[in-house]
Simulated assay, not measured.
Amino acid sequence: MLSKTVKKQRYALLAHPAKHSLSPQIHNYGFEVNRLNAVYFVIDTVASGAAVAEQIRRMPLAGCNLSLPLKETLLPELDEISINARLIGAINTVRNEDGRLIGENTDGTGMVADLAAHGVQLEQAQVLLLGGGATARAILTALALTPVVQVTVLQRANRPHFAQLQHLCAQLAAQTTTKLSCHDWQKIDQLEWSRFTLVINATSIGFGSHAEQAPLTAAQLQQLAPTTKVWDVIYEPRQSQLLQQADQLGLETHNGLGMLVQQAAGAFQFWTGKTLPVNEIQSFLK
Rank of each mutant, 00 (worst) to 15 (best):
D79Y: 08
T5S: 14
T93K: 05
G110C: 10
A144W: 08
S240L: 11
P24M: 02
T93M: 05
N279M: 09
H183M: 11
T109R: 10
T177M: 10
L128P: 07
M1W: 12
V261K: 00
L180N: 04
I88T: 00
D184F: 03
A202R: 02
E212K: 15
V120C: 09
G208T: 12
S82C: 04
L122C: 10
H161E: 14
L101K: 00
V33E: 06
H167R: 14
F270K: 00
E32P: 03
A163L: 14
N92W: 06
A138R: 00
K19T: 12
Y235N: 01
P277F: 06
V149E: 11
A202K: 05
A265I: 02
Q220G: 09
L154A: 09
L122V: 10
A50W: 06
A85Q: 01
I43W: 11
V112G: 12
E77M: 02
L165G: 12
Q150H: 15
I81W: 05
K274N: 10
Q282V: 09
P60D: 03
K274Q: 15
W185C: 12
A225M: 05
A50L: 09
L130Q: 02
D184E: 01
Q124E: 15
Q262T: 04
R195K: 15
T93E: 01
Q155Y: 10
L243R: 08
L257H: 03
P17A: 01
I205F: 11
Q171L: 15
A202S: 15
Q223N: 00
P237C: 14
T253N: 08
G206E: 11
H16F: 09
I205Q: 06
L130V: 09
L242S: 07
A144P: 01
D44P: 05
T178C: 15
T109I: 11
Q190Y: 04
A202V: 12
A18S: 06
L2S: 15
V127Y: 01
A170R: 13
N201H: 11
L2C: 13
T177F: 09
L70C: 00
